[in-house]
């Protein structure tokens, strides 16, 4: 099938999409956007988190066809040109990146949290990021990054 979808503000088209393909596969393998990561494929790790119509979802569990005529924003769509989003800057400054595999999903999920809750408490941060697993277990620095990003808003 053909899927028409707005990605990071641009109208995109993917052809020969198989019905069983995930939105994640389509983004990475057909639309050249490998920022969203493919790990558990079960919605448990959050590495594939993208905005779908302005709401963060696990792209691995969205059938590609479900994105038809909808709007997707990936981690690649957070920066303005060369200017990183404040959440991305905070992750860099706080050293919240170890192997980096979970980072794109965490950045998108933290970005959404700070849009909804500008000054989150630690329990609110923890709960919002509960669906994002860091196998390096670098959670303390990640919490630091979210607090840092919140303090600059």
């Amino acid at each position: 099938m053909r899927v028409n979808v707005t990605v990071n503000g641009e109208q995109r088209q993917a052809d020969d999409v198989w019905e069983g393909e995930s939105l994640l596969f389509m983004l990475r393998e057909r639309l050249g956007l490998p920022g969203s990561k493919n790990a558990c494929e079960q919605g448990e790790c959050g590495s594939c988190t993208v905005y779908l119509d302005n709401v963060p979802v696990c792209a691995c569990l969205v059938a590609a066809g479900q994105a038809q005529d909808r709007s997707v924003r990936t981690v690649e769509g957070l920066a303005e040109g060369d200017q990183l989003d404040p959440v991305q800057e905070a992750f860099v400054e706080a050293g919240a990146v170890q192997c980096g595999f979970c980072t794109p999903g965490l950045v998108v999920q933290a970005h959404d949290l700070l849009d909804r809750v500008p000054n989150p408490s630690d329990p609110e941060i923890r709960e919002a990021l509960a669906g994002n697993l860091c196998r390096c277990t670098g959670y303390e620095k990640i919490l630091d990054a979210v607090r840092l990003a919140a303090s600059r808003r």
Partner: peptide, 9 residues
């Protein structure tokens, strides 16, 4: 229940 992403879906 679940996580933020899953609750959104």
């Amino acid at each position: 229940s679940a996580s933020g992403q899953v609750r959104n879906m």
